[in-house]
Design a protein around this nucleic acid. Structure first.
Lengths: 339, 339
DNA sequence: TTGAAAGCGCTAACAC
DNA sequence: GTGTTAGCGCTTTCAA
């Protein structure tokens, strides 16, 4: 592999001049020299050694994306939300001429050492709980962008969506269709602020309309398709004091539809359902799912954007907090309640 | 950030001793010294500088995953096959104590410079066409593992699945149900060996059973859900000299079902369909899709495994070629042809 | 506009 | 077992 020194020798200049050329400091190099160096680079097939550069310049050009490792057995990155987010982050990072390192970890804290080790310039954290983040910040002083984290900590940046409004819109939509008993079927909300916010928005919309929502209307369901099928089947077999369901994740909504269907309950004529996320699968199933759309790619764009901006602004730049809007996407899984 | 030197000072030894301790060369260090060094590491919160290590030792501990950039507008990593593959690769790479760099590129050739730049130890290439690979090999002499590449080149390793057999099984399954006119609805097969192999297996099974398969039975459809919906609708509106379809990708099969459904054609009673891949979505839709399953995670495991093995074996190790088996998963989208 | 010297943090090779 | 020396390929700083 040719090095700077080889290029310098070939072009008849010193390493420093080559370095200047390569770093685009055109004002420090004469036109003729510039050309000569570039030709030498070309001829030798020279590629910068990023590792040496990183060591010497003390910035690596690496951005890291850290996400929560899935439970054993589950498909890593099996969730379309996460994979599309990752794909879009990669696109932005590559477009900026930097490099993306990807790492799953039980807890973000476990990943910090690898960030420090590679001297990463900034990191984005997906699916982390609020507590972890102060520790992470304490150990690694680079721009840290969290996603969907409700810590509110001023030490880190965050990009999220308006989960509260999403829940509100879902309830409103169902109420507008005449539903007066609406169940929540979703993950436990302890330690899951995202879900809790969706729930709060949901209940507020109900309350404003004088629709009662007792605890009996909140049904636990793990965040997986299979779990939701089971819950859907169980629901079909039991008395149901409600005519509609808000499932705060599409994957649950889809599972519920399938479970209900198995047992002969038709959606939407016998049960209306609203989901959340607008995953691709939601318009692939029949009936297509009415859902709350969040723009995952915009979220990814924003996360990278903030990371790069803070990087450019230097270590004293203030973290940024951004909340993206959501929207209701009416499709086929909601109808007026059966008479 | 503490360095080796700081740890050495703290422990009252030289850098070299600390290095030996950190690299687990226990036989070169006395028990007492080992303990002392470890305590110093602990106390200072020392983390290895991977960048310096890579420069000096000439191996980075980085594995790269390179995949084809999606067309503009499409979700990057929107394809579950690719994202699950990536997730599983990450899992294996992390488990081996290495680091994963992820990069999309128009062509693998475009990504080679970044591999060289970071001195990556090995690379895995997803969704590449056969031609690219000789160029890649020529420019970067580390273990290169391609996925689903039919070049047959002895210069690189490959992991794939038995696409031919998958096509064969699909045709056989439909024929066994009594279908005597079966259409292929899939992407163009020029330059797409994977699809061509599935097609060859498909036609061979038909030929063995004396089932004619004229060119009229091969219908082009882009590899996307939306494209398949359109084709499905068009099919519903035209004379159909066939009672069953083999769609060599689940995403197409699902789109076809939806398109046919829109127009009142019922699957499977009026049209049977077999897909390929067994994506999660295939058992989320109704009817559930009968399909050819490939084990994406096993493919990812094998790719990383080969990369690491070749790495351990040194630069002269012979590339490996592995073909994983596929299996028919009977579900709900196939029935006997309508009378 | 170009060059020389020093050093980033680590490991390999060899000496003690 | 432990220490010494040299150097990986680059950038920074300062001098010419």
């Amino acid at each position: 592999m040719p090095t700077l020194r080889d290029v310098a020798a070939d072009a008849g200049v010193t390493k420093m001049t080559v370095s200047n050329v390569l770093n685009g400091r055109r004002d420090q190099v004469s036109e003729a020299t510039y050309e000569r160096v570039m030709r030498a680079v070309e001829r030798l097939g020279y590629v910068r050694n990023a590792t040496a550069r990183s060591l010497s310049a003390n910035r690596s050009g690496i951005l890291a994306l850290v996400y929560k490792a899935p439970p054993p057995g589950a498909d890593p990155l099996g969730n379309p939300h996460d994979s599309i987010f990752l794909g879009e982050v990669e696109r932005c990072v590559s477009a900026s001429g930097r490099h993306l390192m990807v790492r799953s970890a039980e807890s973000p804290i476990a990943a910090v050492d690898s960030l420090r080790s590679w001297n990463v310039d900034a990191a984005i954290f997906l699916n982390t709980v609020a507590e972890d983040l102060e520790t992470v910040r304490a150990r690694h002083n680079v721009p840290l962008v969290f996603v969907d984290n409700y810590s509110g900590s001023p030490l880190i940046s965050n990009v999220g969506v308006d989960d509260f409004r999403g829940g509100y819109l879902a309830a409103e939509h169902l109420a507008d269709h005449g539903h007066a008993q609406i169940a929540w079927v979703g993950p436990e909300r302890v330690l899951n602020e995202v879900m809790d916010q969706r729930f709060q928005g949901f209940t507020q919309a109900l309350a404003e309309r004088g629709i009662a929502h007792g605890p009996s209307g909140a049904i636990d369901c793990e965040l997986s398709f299979d779990a939701a099928v089971t819950v859907g089947e169980a629901l079909a077999d039991s008395p149901r004091p409600f005519t509609a369901i808000f499932a705060p994740a599409d994957i649950i909504a889809i599972g519920l539809m399938k479970g209900l269907n198995h047992k002969g309950i038709h959606v939407p004529s016998q049960m209306s359902i609203v989901g959340f996320d607008d995953l691709p699968v939601s318009h692939q199933v029949s009936p297509e799912l009415t859902t709350i759309r969040q723009d995952v790619r915009a979220k990814a764009d924003a996360a990278v954007d903030i990371a790069l901006r803070l990087l450019a602004a230097g270590p004293d730049a203030a973290p940024e907090h951004l909340t993206l809007d959501v929207a209701l996407v009416p499709r086929e899984s909601v109808a007026a309640p059966a008479r």
